[in-house]
Write a protein that binds this DNA or RNA. Structure first.
Lengths: 145, 145
DNA sequence: CTACATCCTACAGCAACTATAGCTTCAAGA
DNA sequence: TCTTGAAGCTATAGTTGCTGTAGGATGTAG
């Protein structure tokens, strides 16, 4: 069951766009499926599973290169999963770095907005902070000079 | 003082690349500067200030379109700064949305890595979670079906 | 006056898709 | 069987915000 899926129904199942699936094929992440006589793609269950794997990894922030590596590793099930662990840890480190940066941005944005005088542009605190960053207004450390 | 800056020295002051400045000019964010007879750009203090404004806003996560709007608003200093406030709040909302998403990703990645058995790929928990998302392993709500 | 850093334009490339144009195929109803 | 309309096909360009490169011109210090 669920053999011979068209690209459209596969896309609906995976909550992706048709073009994304073709893009993954072009990038070597999805193997080329069977074709009808007229040249249309027909997918098997294995394809659907692979696409689900890719999408879930993408949702977790894995870049396509990392996913490619994970997919290669699953083809060698007897290896140690050290590399898999490594890839996942790299993604986690990346996510944590982004979090730290965004948290500091949030702080500065909130401060900026809180001090907005709601008057005229010429007195606007938001504009002043953006203009005078190097002089005084910026407290956060991660992008000071 | 600080008139007639070359593009290179302006870039050094603003911690940007030369190409980035040319890119901002092309995008209409930086006004075209004076040129020498030979065609090289020479920048004034006003240019340096404007570039600093752009860079600081970028560091805070403002997209170029938003920066364009802010720059237009600073040319009309008598208007209410309501729009400025709005732009800043939009950026903050965007930052907070990204934070929420990354926090949930971090949780799932950590759980995944913690459960990795450090054995063979065929038993790897990380791979299993990525493959079986739809079935059971995923607890987070924001991307469950 | 020569050497060398810096400048110029124009264009390609990055990530990960997304959208469009212009055409063909498939499947279901009459 | 024929027709119609949805969905498929390829190829290419666009998105964001730059960054890098090629191939040449300019500016300035010694």
């Amino acid at each position: 069951m669920a053999e011979n899926l068209t690209i459209g129904s596969l896309a609906r199942r995976a909550s992706t766009k048709v073009q994304t699936i073709r893009f993954y094929e072009q990038e070597g992440l999805m193997p080329p499926p069977a074709r009808t006589e007229g040249g249309q793609r027909r997918y098997s269950r294995a394809h659907a599973d692979r696409l689900a794997f890719i999408r879930h990894a993408r949702e977790l922030g894995f870049p396509l290169d990392a996913i490619r590596e994970l997919l290669n590793l699953t083809d060698k099930p007897d290896q140690s999963c050290e590399r898999v662990d490594r890839v996942a840890r790299d993604v986690l480190a990346d996510v944590e770095a982004k979090l730290a940066r965004l948290e500091s941005l949030r702080g500065e944005l909130k401060r900026m907005i809180r001090h907005c005088g709601h008057g005229r542009v010429s007195d606007c605190r938001v504009i002043k902070v953006l203009a005078d960053h190097s002089h005084s207004n910026c407290v956060s450390a991660d992008h000071a000079h």
